[in-house]
Amino acid sequence: MNASTARMLNKICTYLFLTLLSIVIIYPLLITASSAFRVGNSAAFQLDFSGSWTLDHFKRLFDETLYLNWYSNTLVIALSVMVLQVTIVTLAGYSYSRYRFAGRKKSLIFFLIIQMVPTMAALTAFYVLAMLIGALDQYWFLTAIYIGGGIPMNTWLMKGYFDTVPREIDEAARIDGAGHLRIFASIVLPLVKPMLAVQALWAFMAPFGDYLLTKFLLRSPERLTIAVGLQSFISNPQQQKVALFAAGAILAALPICVLFFFLQKNFVSGLTAGGTKG
């Protein structure tokens, strides 16, 4: 076999692999998405383009179910987690990157170890605590758990990214007479915007996609989030609302996907800067 045949063969294999993988990825997504627009209410997703199309399922989703409720609940939780967590993590990451204070190294190690404790480690306690203080169904409780759980790991990533900003920049500003807050807010912070965007997206996505904690801690139907709510459409075999599920899924996935593709360029730099450089 000469070199050009080998190259040809390689080309064919590569494209075959990539095409097959693409089909495997697109098929389940397409089958779900298309079910949202198909007339009728079948009990299972089928890829079938023969029937007629409709937007009825979306209308029913808004009129007959609590979907809009769930959507706004999820947004409230996810947005509060995003704002608070990014603020806390940025402040802490900045301190660890820029200041050499007593106890710094010890507390960094503390963050690293705490980061390894899975949120699950406290699952029983969260449940018991929530029952005791009447925090079942309360968003502040859930929000606090999401924020606290995300802090250690993200502080590390944030610190790693701050480390990539040369310290000479703030030294120079200090000589010019800028105070702590000024250096932080108007000099260093603008330089880490890409990482802030990634952090914000992650902080937003975590509660948005979480199922476990909401399933544990939220009870009343109108207080649920999208994840738990949508599941009720599809888990009960007696009343399959597959089309409603599909419609709801599209509305939930669309904004996340747009944000994701918009910000994905920043992911790798953010991950590797924090993850491998320590």
Binding site: Y94, F101, A121, A122, T124, I147, G148, G149
Partner: peptide, 23 residues
């Protein structure tokens, strides 16, 4: 720097350390 890391510590004490101890 202590002031800046304080919120992170408060959250971690209440959301991680306290519940883990209870568990």
């Amino acid at each position: 720097p202590y002031l800046f890391t304080l919120p992170a510590y408060i959250m971690m004490v209440f959301v991680i350390i306290f519940p883990v101890l209870v568990t």
